[in-house]
Amino acid sequence: MEDADILFGIYCPPHPQPLLSPEASDGYAKLRQAYDTCRERIENSDADLIIVYSTTWPSIIGHQIQAHPEPEWVHVDDDFHYLGSMPYKFKMDVDFAECLRDSAKERGLHSRTIAYEGFPIDTGSVVALKLLNPDNRIPACIVSSNMYANRAETIVLGKSIRDALAKQGKKAIAVVVSSLSNRMFTEHIDPTEDRIHSPKDDEWNRKILEFFADGRLEDLSQLSREIHGQIRVQKVVAYKPAWWMAATMGQHNNYQGEVLAYEALHGSGGAVVTLTPSSGSFGDKEFDEDDVEYYHGDRDVLDKGML
């Protein structure tokens, strides 16, 4: 695998409240403040590129990569439409998108670039890019989260990103857009009374944040299946953000972690966290699954088992 230059990583939630209604509760304001801190750090970095992996952009046909040079639209969230519209105009790194597509193919993934006027960029990507990079000072690249992909495919996708960064010699910031626990209240609530949906979700979220704060990204990656079973609503096959983040940033625990905010977003766990590569952290877990370099598709075990 090529050596890639990831300056730091950000884990942030997809909900629109920090963008559209930060004043509605102290918690939303704290999340907004944490986004602002990340924005300043991005501005003070010498990054060439922001790479966004958004759990609210599901794909089916392989892995899609946004490659319109200046996607522009007015986005409205399916649930939170009453909070207002989100007009956006972003700047994408088309060269990188195309390089990533090719790198992903070289590792066996089905991938394609998307460059259509009016393509619906998802709520999570819109919120993240508007708050983290409001002036489009740095070009971005958004990748989808394939709804059928599991660990192997997601790890290989992360490694493809490292390949593409190394090929182009670019310094990047990796942004994962995802909740921690993602169970929301199923009724409308007063934002000032927002809280994590259940004590169990809260306890798991805090455990995950301990790992983040200790810089133990690879350990979190290895806990992904457990996290999915414990606190994720089963919309997709797996909790993939930690797999993607570890594979993209480097599969180890040597990070300096900082939890900038942790608050409820309509019951779900919203955290803004940064991870910076360092040499000062450690972990206590060991792989019990193979590392994966190339994706080979379905193994066709059903056919092989037929009498």
Partner: peptide
């Protein structure tokens, strides 16, 4: 407005 399919944008705009 215009509807672009997020999964199959190549065939539905």
């Amino acid at each position: 407005s215009k509807s672009v399919d997020p999964v199959f944008p190549n065939i539905f705009r």
